[in-house]
Design a protein around this nucleic acid. Structure first.
Lengths: 211, 211
DNA sequence: CACGTACCCCCATGTTCATGGGTGCCCGGG
DNA sequence: CCCGGGCACCCATGAACATGGGGGTACGTG
């Protein structure tokens, strides 16, 4: 059990709770910063559960989660935060979190959640669960999806067709324009998306949810 | 509230429960088959919640969900089944379900779940929630991922590179083979995946989780 | 030991892309 | 008013691709 939390009071309260006999979880380490997490992992720590606060002073929350998920794939990562906005939640889960507890929860609920996580469950409130499910329904990275707005109408149409593997000639016919024009739009799309091949553009179109 | 359930006893038990004063849900219609669902929707039914049994006699469970999700986007769809295998669960959620209740649950748990669903929550047991989250972590359609096995080792390597937008020449260098050989592998890949362009292959590689 | 199957390897040809060049339209600011 | 920037439109050419050929080695079966 690893605790990642920058607020000293909160961290110590959690540590204390873990030492209650009812907790049934073993406290192994705590970290107040991203750097401390890295050092703990370098030190050979393999926690089965990690409770992580988003909002450390030196590292973005999602990056801490990504780090933990990458270095310790067997660890169940549970987010612990005040944030209950959709984007934050979805970003955390996508980054690799397995559970999401709000700081408004009671200490007992937190312990229950951690125990569930250690047993292969996923502590989620119903409203968070709903957001996760909706994220699954709308495939595509919301970060990337925002990039769509940098494209013009025509460019978006062209990109959508590219995503399906349509050839330039077919796209031109479908849009009622010349082949050269499609090529011209593609040029701009490539610049804006920082790619230089149809295959890359197609995969990005997909991640944007432009199916 | 729409009930979709082919077993008459179960259906009637649910209907009876919905008429309890504590249920706080209004029973609007029931359907025992896929056809009956279609007719109910054609008849102008707009339920706020639908409890659907997978395993109707005339239609696949996932298809019923897809149908409901497509025709009634505002309806919260809750699956109700004995199945608790990962693939079934993930398929149902991906098809558009918002909640997943097991038939081993008590009638009160079911009513609670339906109520939560009607209020914008998502009734999931912790273990089901875990599977949903893991599905989000491993992007890609498990159906398509199975197709990977029809590809040989070399073909999979080539497809993985294609998915990143690597050029044939670069792929050849990376794999230590001739350009012509890459082209040859690509030919077979296209046949097996039923496509004929790099862009299509790349999007499929992505959906397979070959990133 | 053929024989078929499966995999990996290579070349040559026409088609499609990627990217360099352009033109005309509209609109808001100087 | 006219100038610049953004958008849509078009052409030309070398690079990359799609798909037609053709090999070779291994392995299991009649």
């Amino acid at each position: 059990m690893l605790i990642v939390e920058d607020d000293a009071w909160m961290r110590e309260a959690l540590e204390a709770a873990l030492h209650w006999p009812e907790s049934r979880l073993e406290h192994a380490a705590s970290a107040a910063t991203g750097r401390a997490v890295i050092e703990a992992l370098r030190g050979g720590l393999f926690p089965d559960v990690a409770l992580v606060d988003m909002g450390l002073p030196d590292m973005h929350g999602a990056d801490v989660i990504r780090l933990l998920a990458a270095c310790r794939p067997a660890t169940s990562i549970v987010v612990f935060t005040v944030q209950e906005h959709r984007d934050v939640i979805v970003k955390a889960i996508r980054a690799g979190a397995h559970g999401y507890l709000l700081k408004s929860a009671t200490i007992v609920e937190v312990l229950d959640g951690l125990l569930a996580a250690s047993r292969g469950g996923a502590p989620l409130t119903p409203s968070v669960a709903r957001m996760v499910i909706e994220a699954l329904h709308r495939p595509g990275d919301p970060e990337l999806a925002a990039e769509i707005e940098r494209l013009t109408t025509r460019e978006t149409e062209v990109l959508t067709l590219l995503g399906k593997g349509v050839t330039y000639a077919e796209a031109a016919k479908l849009l009622g324009i010349a082949l050269g024009t499609v090529q011209s739009h593609v040029k701009v799309i490539y610049e804006k998306l920082q790619v230089n091949s149809k295959a890359e553009a197609a995969t990005i179109a997909q991640r944007m949810g432009l199916l």
